[in-house]
Each structure stands twice: as structure tokens, then as C-alpha cells.
Design a protein around this nucleic acid. Structure first.
Length: 425
RNA sequence: GGAGAGGUGGCAGAGCGGUUGAAUGCACCGGUCUUGAAAACCGGCAUGGGUUUGUAGCCCAUCGUGGGUUCGAAUCCCACCCUCUCCGCCA
């Protein structure tokens, strides 16, 4: 959520900033609503103040044994007036809240301009794109060859966009997640957390998935509904909700492995082949809760923590910064990591690391007490994949394949595979 | 699922329908004292919001949540949520 004060004090600059993110805000309508809010709030509070002082006088008069009837008569209409005013105020306030919850975060000043992904900017490349003396297979072909990846079996159970993994592929998938968790906890100083996969609506609202993107999430049928987490970012970041941290509690660095559930509404027809885009996938997620002045540095740390996983796996990748038009709702700046997939002959997203500044913190009331001023300040929240496990599996399979279809197991994963070095046919 | 107990400030814990935003203790911050520290003493110390040039004033809201009764609700009524204990069921 944006700070309502910037909309109040600098509406036109904010409208312009939102426009670069593809969000059109009707300044006139918002201004009118804000004017009504101000008038109504003042009216309500004035009536409340009157009610309070009257009640106090009545109490005092009664204590002295005076006749209070004239005082009662004097306030007879106050209750109704107050009720009416409160109802109008509440309506305007809710309307304004809906509006605020609908607006995306503002881009950081160093985010490149641009309307869509074609204007993202590559920052660096790492690794050597492998060359093959044969036509490399994609992960689907490899899966069929090994009979270890079965989308039909998954479809029978759950419908489209699910994948079933078997034997060495299933183990490799598990090994990857274990490996990532170990690197982040042992080498990068993260605290591992195990979290609920079903969360309340207010939790989804805290990180920005609700109310705007309800179509993207799976919800349960109980009342009120719970939501299947679309990313561990949701439960983990919300650990900070309603908290006031001491300055030396921060930074908090959490890592969690969870399944992620996404409706993929609106992506029909995209990536239908293989396990690139699924309703359910596993992800190791990194979350930082930091003081505002530390979030830029934390963002750099986060992206490097994610990149190291690919380096250890010796997978070629490139890192890009998303342009304003391609960024997600809650982010003020986002880096993506794209891994080279030989089967597709292209780089594909495998991690997305975002600085959400105070946008989520304001929604979920996550604060830190400034030891100098004694004031509470909103924290900054950051999250990033470290990495998407399913896509990393794809990358390993496609990059480590050999002519006969066998797949070498990266050295760092072998301890997690019981010493196995090769997945043979 | 059944029975019972309970949800008040960072924590513990008071609170007759009326100057209670809330006693008291602990913690924390500042000061006095001390060579220094501790102790003792004095003072301060919830959050959010509105108004305002203002981190000054003034005002409003908040005692699990939402309704209700009332001139007035932390206190009374209703519903819901959550926590704990015991029983049942169960990975």
C-alpha cells in the first residue's frame, strides 16, 4: 500500500509515477474523495467530542445529585446525527481503502523505464552456455526417455498443469531443494522456517495477493476461505505482520521450502509443454525483513544468494533488472535470474528477487522502533526465489544430459543422491 | 466433536456503567546520589488517525473481533474468533 500522505500531498507526481507502471489513477476523482473524507472525518470527530463532553457533564451532575433531565434533552439528537455521519464516513473511508489496496508500489528511482519485458535490462551473464555434439533434448523428451516424468498420470489425478516425477527424477528434485536449503542456512545465514500452506485472506492481503489478484489463487470452500500459498513469500513475510521490532532484531533472514499453488488464470496456452508452468511447484524462498536504510544492500545480497546456487550447479544464467512496466505489484525494484535451457535454446526465469520497500509492511503493519527517535518506522520487506525447484530440475536435466540420454548429476548434488553420479537409462 | 477456563499496554496483572487510555509491579529511557556500577529516590514511558507550516497544541479511535443496550461501555447483552485444560478421534 502506498502512503496515503503522498497521495494527499503530492497527488500529481504520484499519478505520473503510477502511470509509468501502467496504472491509471483518476486524480480528480481521488481528490474529490479525499475532500469528502476530510470533511466527514472532521464532522464525525467533532460530534464524538461533543458526545464525550456531554456524557462527562451528565456524569458529574448526577454525582452531585442534580437534575440531569435538561442535559439529557439537550443531547437527544446527537446520537442519530453521529450515527448518520459515521455511516457516511465509513463508506468513504472504505472506498478510499479499496482504492489504495488496488494501487501498485512505486518504482525505485534507478528502475529502467519501459512498458513490458522487451525493455528489461540485462545486468550480467555468468557461466558458459554448453555446446552439444548432438541435438539436446528438452526435459519432456528426457522424462519420457527415462519414464520418470509423467504428465498423463498427473493429469489423470489432477488435470492439466501437473507433473508426476518418479525414481531418480523425484529424488533429484528432492535433492535440489535440500541442497538449496543447506546452502542458504549454512553459508548465507538464513533461518529455516516451516510454515502453513493454507493462509487467511488477511495474510494474502498483507503481501499484496489480495484483494486484486484473487483469480490467481486457489481458495478453500470454508467460510471464510483460506488460500493455498502461491509462494512462501506470503506466510514468511507475514511473520512480521503486526510486529514492532527492536532495531537489533533486524535484519531477519528466513528461508522456507514450500509448494506453491497458482491458478495460472490468464496464461492459458503458455508453456503448456512440460513442467515449466504448473499449478503446483516447489520453491525455496528467501525473505528479508530489514530497516528502510538497509533494503538496497539487502536486495543485492538476496540476488547474489540466489545466483550462488546456479554457480554451484554450474548452470549458465543471466541477471536482468525488470523495467517499470514489467514489475510485479508489490515491488519497487526486481531482479530476475534466467537460466540457460538447452532444450529450448533460451534463457528462462528461475528466480525473481524483489525489494518491496514499505509497501507490504504498511499493509501488514510491520514496524521497527527507531532507537534514536523512539519512533516506529515501517520495515522494508524483500523476497526472492532461491530457487524455483522444478525449473532448476529442468535446467539440470537439460544441461547435464549426454548423447545417450543419460544425465550426469552435478557434483554438489551427489551427496544428496547417495553418491549417485549418473542417471542411466 | 464434547465439557470447562480465559483473552486488558513490551511482560505480569488490577479494574463499582461515569473526569479510566486504563491502578500496581517488572522491563525500558532520563535524572539525583556514587570514584564507577548496583541499590534507593525523582521523572518519563501504548498504538493508530485527524487538524495544523509544525516531532507544539487540540481532537478522535483502540482493553480479541463485530453488533447491541445507554446521555455515557474495558465494565451489561448477543454472535463470532482465538488460546489453554480435560475427554473423544487421529498423521
Amino acid at each position: 500500500m502506498l502512503d496515503p500522505l503522498i497521495l494527499r500531498n503530492d497527488l500529481h507526481a504520484t499519478v505520473a509515477a503510477l502511470e509509468t507502471r501502467g496504472y491509471a489513477l483518476d486524480a480528480g476523482a481521488y481528490e474529490a474523495l479525499e475532500a469528502r473524507r476530510k470533511a466527514l472525518q472532521m464532522e464525525v470527530e467533532e460530534l464524538q467530542s461533543k458526545r464525550n463532553s456531554n456524557a462527562k457533564s451528565i456524569g458529574q451532575a448526577k454525582a452531585k445529585g442534580e437534575d440531569i433531565q435538561p442535559l439529557l434533552d439537550a443531547v437527544a439528537e446527537l446520537g442519530d446525527q453521529l450515527k448518520t455521519a459515521e455511516a457516511s464516513f465509513r463508506q468513504v473511508r472504505d472506498e478510499q481503502a479499496d482504492w489504495l489496496l488496488d494501487m501498485p508500489n512505486l518504482a525505485a528511482s534507478d528502475v529502467p523505464a519501459g512498458a513490458d519485458e522487451s525493455e528489461n535490462v540485462e545486468l550480467r551473464k555468468w557461466g558458459v552456455v554448453p555446446t552439444f555434439e548432438f541435438e539436446p533434448r528438452d526435459h519432456v523428451e528426457l522424462g519420457e526417455l527415462h519414464r520418470m516424468m509423467d504428465s498423463e498420470a498427473a493429469a489423470k489425478l489432477a488435470g492439466a498443469r501437473f507433473t508426476l516425477l518418479k525414481s531418480s527424477f523425484a529424488r533429484l528434485h528432492r535433492a535440489l531443494a535440500q541442497f538449496m536449503l543447506d546452502v542458504h542456512t549454512q553459508e548465507h545465514g538464513y533461518t529455516e522456517v516451516y510454515v502453513p500452506y493454507l493462509v487467511k485472506g488477511e495474510t494474502m492481503q498483507g503481501t499484496g495477493q489480495l484483494p486484486k489478484f484473487s483469480d490467481d489463487a486457489f481458495a478453500t470452500t470454508d467460510d471464510p476461505p483460506r488460500y493455498l500459498v502461491p509462494t512462501a513469500e506470503v506466510p514468511v513475510t507475514n511473520l512480521a505482520a503486526d510486529q514492532i521490532f527492536a532495531a537489533d532484531d533486524l535484519p531477519l533472514k528466513y528461508v522456507a521450502q514450500t509448494p506453491c499453488f497458482r491458478r495460472e488464470a490468464g496464461s492459458a496456452g503458455q508453456d503448456t509443454r512440460g513442467m515449466i508452468r504448473q499449478h503446483q511447484f516447489e520453491k525455496v524462498e528467501l525473505v528479508h525483513i530489514v530497516r528502510a536504510e538497509d533494503s538496497k544492500a539487502a536486495h543485492e545480497e538476496l540476488i547474489s544468494n540466489a545466483e550462488i546456487i546456479l554457480q554451484k550447479l554450474n548452470l549458465a544464467y543471466r541477471t536482468i533488472v525488470l523495467c517499470k512496466g514489467d514489475m510485479g505489484f508489490s515491488a519497487c525494484k526486481t531482479y530476475d535470474i534466467e537460466v540457460w535451457l538447452p532444450g529450448q535454446g533460451t534463457y528462462r526465469e528461475i528466480s525473481s528477487c524483489s525489494n518491496c520497500s514499505d509497501f507490504q509492511a504498511r499493509r501488514m503493519k510491520a514496524r521497527v522502533r527507531n532507537p534514536e527517535s523512539g519512533k516506529n518506522e515501517l520495515v522494508h520487506t524483500l523476497n526472492g526465489s532461491g530457487l524455483a525447484v522444478g525449473r532448476t530440475l529442468i535446467a539440470v536435466l537439460e544441461n547435464y544430459q549426454q548423447q545417450d540420454g543419460s544425465v550426469r548429476i552435478p557434483e554438489v548434488l551427489q551427496p544428496y543422491m547417495g553418491g549417485q553420479e549418473l542417471i542411466t537409462l
